[in-house]
Computed example of a mutant assay.
Amino acid sequence: MPTLRLRVLPDRFVLAHDPGATFPEDDEWVALVRAPEGLTVLRHASPWGGDGERWAGFYAEPHGLDVPGVLASLLGPLADASVPVFVASTFHADLVLVPQDRLEGAVDALRDAGHAVAVP
């Protein structure tokens, strides 16, 4: 499994699920995933609160799509530490979200697994 250099993003995120939508009504989203059960929308959390559970994001240095085990090297230690995750993958890397109140434990689990984690 690869060892990664990760950074915790300074932003916080919220997730929403809309079973009837095919596209959000606004353009304030970060990522969209359309599946048979509806649309999942990832947005930046409002600094004023009130828009749901906050998630913190880990982002790794870009890597090729041909590098095996990258996501497994992150998800395994988080699962072993009982930290829930939501993942949004890009062409270059993966955005691994954990509940904001579990961030400290997630950082510890990833560091214990050998990853370098920078926290702002």
Results as ranks from 00 to 15, higher is better:
residue 42 L to F: 00
residue 42 L to Q: 04
residue 42 L to K: 00
residue 43 R to T: 05
residue 44 H to V: 07
residue 44 H to A: 04
residue 45 A to P: 08
residue 46 S to V: 02
residue 47 P to W: 03
residue 47 P to F: 00
residue 47 P to V: 09
residue 47 P to H: 06
residue 48 W to Y: 03
residue 48 W to E: 12
residue 48 W to H: 11
residue 48 W to C: 00
residue 49 G to I: 09
residue 49 G to T: 12
residue 49 G to F: 03
residue 49 G to Y: 05
residue 49 G to W: 10
residue 50 G to P: 06
residue 51 D to H: 10
residue 51 D to A: 04
residue 51 D to M: 08
residue 52 G to L: 06
residue 52 G to D: 08
residue 52 G to R: 06
residue 53 E to D: 07
residue 55 W to N: 10
residue 55 W to L: 08
residue 55 W to A: 07
residue 56 A to L: 05
residue 56 A to P: 06
residue 56 A to F: 04
residue 56 A to Y: 02
residue 57 G to D: 08
residue 57 G to L: 10
residue 58 F to R: 14
residue 58 F to C: 13
residue 59 Y to E: 12
residue 59 Y to I: 14
residue 60 A to D: 10
residue 60 A to I: 13
residue 60 A to C: 12
residue 60 A to P: 14
residue 60 A to S: 15
residue 61 E to F: 02
residue 61 E to C: 05
residue 62 P to D: 02
residue 62 P to C: 10
residue 63 H to L: 10
residue 63 H to G: 02
residue 63 H to V: 15
residue 64 G to W: 03
residue 65 L to V: 15
residue 65 L to A: 13
residue 67 V to Q: 11
residue 67 V to E: 12
residue 68 P to T: 15
residue 68 P to A: 06
residue 69 G to H: 06
residue 70 V to L: 05
residue 72 A to D: 10
residue 72 A to S: 15
residue 72 A to Y: 01
residue 72 A to I: 14
residue 73 S to W: 02
residue 73 S to D: 05
residue 73 S to L: 05
residue 73 S to G: 06
residue 73 S to F: 00
residue 74 L to P: 08
residue 74 L to C: 07
residue 74 L to W: 03
residue 74 L to I: 13
residue 75 L to A: 12
residue 75 L to D: 00
residue 75 L to C: 11
residue 76 G to A: 13
residue 76 G to L: 11
residue 76 G to Y: 06
residue 77 P to C: 06
residue 77 P to W: 04
residue 78 L to T: 15
residue 79 A to F: 07
residue 79 A to V: 12
residue 81 A to E: 00
residue 81 A to K: 03
residue 81 A to V: 14
